[in-house]
């Protein structure tokens, strides 16, 4: 909101409801607050990272209503009613198979891009689109890793894919 002087008033907040990691939350947010800043600064969910704030690096990837989203490019008010899963909500207790595979395959070094990589990988596996290493590479290319753990990331994602296809075959 612009006041007469042309400056914004910090008091102009909008009520929204988000389900974050399974928990329904009523929130008052400024219209210009990104989903990323809401998570990191207001809700202390700092597992979601800010690498560029321009949708170019993927470090802020979260799953919104089942789809991968760059949280830096989404205004929080636009997601009213949505369900958001962050890295903190991926597992309770034991690691999610993708998290465990990342540790086993050393699919990270500094760890800063890692939550985004993992959220991308989880959604990618659920979408069922990636079957080959080539496809994993392509579909994981929205997540930059400056430490250069790419080959290990592909190994980790492939191991979970093979494990889940093995489980599917066993079930059939």
């Amino acid at each position: 909101m612009l006041s007469e002087s042309g400056t914004r008033d910090a008091g102009d907040r909008i009520a929204i409801t988000l389900t974050i990691n399974g928990q329904r939350r009523q929130l008052q947010v400024a219209p210009w607050t990104s989903l990323l800043d809401l998570l990191r600064e207001d809700l202390d969910l700092t597992g979601t990272k800010k690498g560029c704030d321009h949708g170019q690096c993927g470090a802020c990837t979260v799953i919104v209503d089942g789809r991968r989203v760059n949280a830096c490019l989404a205004l929080a008010v636009m997601k009213d009613g949505a369900s958001v899963t962050t890295i903190e909500g991926l597992s309770t207790g034991a690691l999610h198979p993708v998290q465990a595979a990342f540790v086993e395959h050393d699919a990270f070094q500094c760890g800063y891009c890692t939550p985004g990589q993992i959220m991308s990988a989880v959604a990618l596996i659920e979408e069922g689109r990636a079957r080959t290493r080539e496809e994993i590479r392509e579909y994981m290319s929205g997540n930059l890793c400056r430490c250069g753990a790419y080959t290990n990331i592909v190994d980790a994602v492939e191991s979970v894919l093979n494990g889940s296809s093995a489980r599917r075959e066993a079930a059939e």
Binding site: L45, T46, I87, E88, L95, Q99, F102, F108, T114
Partner: peptide, 17 residues
């Protein structure tokens, strides 16, 4: 495997900001 791995893959490792 990295001992700091679980903290990094669960998002609990705290960076400067």
């Amino acid at each position: 495997s990295r001992l700091d791995g679980p903290a990094k893959v669960t998002g609990t490792a705290k960076y400067a900001a």
